[in-house]
Amino acid sequence: MRAALPYPLLSAALALTWLLLNAPPTPGQLVLALLVGLAIPHVMRALRPRSVRLRAPGRLARLGIIVLYDMLRSNIDVARVILGLRRGTRRTGFVAIPLDLREPFGITILAIILTATPGTLWVQYDSDTGRLLMHVLDLTDGDAWVRRVKDRYERPLMEIFA
């Protein structure tokens, strides 16, 4: 089983991508999708990607919903800042966040999440100290941002990739 399917998640994703690109699925396309899903992960072996272990797939779905909501809200917030609709003075600046998350896939997902929410920008991550430097467009309270990243994103990610 391990020899035939070294990366089952990758195989499934590749087969699904093939079917999406070649919809509607015909028997011929199904066979091709199966071949793509079986063959390409063996090429990937040369790159030796680390295998992913998802411990809590249900939490991944919940995190996705939280991120979608935050993405929507921060898009509107940033649009208001740009169009000058935001009242009061706006401070912008850097926030340093001490991360406990060390799993590379978790950190990658966190980088994608912080990029997908427009008000936050991932500047630098130091893998020795685990500290992340982030730029925030509307920085009213630095500690609130640290708590927000840790509670809303980092904790679920640590449960998902343990």
Binding site: M71, N75, V78, A79, I82, T92, A116, P118, L121, H135
Partner: peptide
């Protein structure tokens, strides 16, 4: 478009980088 306007209106580099993500996300 708002993201593109932000590239012009915002002042520093780090502020500007936030703007185009509007087009890349929502």
């Amino acid at each position: 478009l708002t993201g593109a306007i932000g590239l012009v209106r915002l002042k520093t580099f780090y502020e500007r980088v936030h703007a185009p993500t509007l087009g890349a996300t929502l």
